[in-house]
């Protein structure tokens, strides 16, 4: 059964190439995540999130990354279905040949990671795109500038009575803002719901961003979420333990001189990257 009339090797090369891009992104994501552990009230983490959310080069890469995730999953599913039908009658006794755990369960560990991605998107990515409500942050400087702008309009009589009252109410609200809604340096409003954004920043204020730091801390304090997170990264470790060696094999890279380097990179990814991610919920939980 052939779902797509392309050579099985070409499909594997495509799967490997899309996977390679995802591999390159992982250390970047880990680096940003580790900022959460810095004892600065989320200053670095929010700065990194702001950069990732606003930089145009990153935005282009984001599209490429999403395409890579989608194609990696689609090709993996196609290959699995085709391979399943290459043996229509299964053996009675399960295959006992010596193979690595990671290689045997690639589609399952991949499936676990894909399910987690959906959860991850609901928690963060959809919030960023305004599809789901989360927590928000806004620069006090920008809120102040917006307020001043409206205040000038009010002096010139350009605001309706309703807006005038709202502006006065905003002045009252922001002067009474509690300390948990401010970051350590008192430069940003944080941990705001959408209603609070309107309350403190004004109805028409749009320059607020998702407060990923608060959202992450809240999520990692939830033990069920953290345990799911840790299990997913065990699956990721297994997936990566086979992925890199398999990628090299598929691209025809096998030589006694550089094979040890491939094994080193594979082990690094399989052990260091998942442990790096797993440290975060463990540090926050305990």
């Amino acid at each position: 059964m052939k779902l797509i009339q392309i050579s099985s090797i070409t499909k594997k090369i495509a799967l490997a190439a899309f996977g390679l891009f995802l591999l390159l992104f992982l250390p970047v994501h880990l680096g940003i995540n580790l900022c959460i552990l810095r004892d600065d009230g989320g200053l670095w983490y929010r700065a990194a999130s702001h950069f990732m959310g606003t930089n145009y080069i990153v935005k282009v890469f984001e599209i490429v990354l999403m395409a890579c995730v989608a194609f990696h999953i689609i090709i993996a599913i196609i290959i699995t279905i085709e391979n399943f039908f290459a043996r229509p009658v299964r053996y009675k006794v399960r295959i006992k040949s010596k193979t690595s755990l990671g290689s045997r369960y690639m589609i399952w560990t991949g499936g676990i990671i894909a399910c987690f991605l959906v959860l991850h998107f609901i928690n963060f990515y959809f919030v960023k795109h305004g599809l789901i409500e989360g927590k928000y942050t806004a620069s006090i400087e920008k809120v102040d500038a917006f307020f001043q702008e409206n205040a000038i309009k009010m002096q010139n009589g350009e605001l309706s009575d309703e807006k005038k009252n709202a502006l006065i109410a905003q002045y009252q609200n922001i002067s009474e803002v509690s300390s948990d809604k401010m970051d350590k340096e008192r430069k940003n409003l944080i941990n705001l719901t959408k209603q609070e954004v309107k309350k403190y920043c004004g109805e028409d204020f749009t320059e607020y961003e998702p407060d990923f730091y608060t959202m992450s801390i809240e999520l990692f304090k939830n033990k069920t979420y953290s345990i799911i997170y840790l299990l997913v990264f065990i699956a990721l470790g297994l997936h990566l333990s086979h992925a890199i060696k398999s990628l090299a094999q598929t691209l025809g890279l096998s030589h006694k001189t550089y094979n040890p380097f491939i094994v080193f990179v594979a082990n690094f990814y399989a052990i260091v990257i998942p442990i790096g991610f797993a440290i975060i919920p463990l540090a926050i939980m305990f």
């Binding site: 099985s8 594997k12 290959i79 391979n83 290459a86 193979t99 060696k245 398999s246």
Partner: peptide, 18 residues
């Protein structure tokens, strides 16, 4: 040879090395 292998319905390699 690869084309024939695919045409005959053999599965693809997932590098398990069984």
């Amino acid at each position: 040879m690869v084309s024939k292998m695919n045409e005959l319905g053999f599965g693809g390699c997932t590098n398990t090395y069984a």
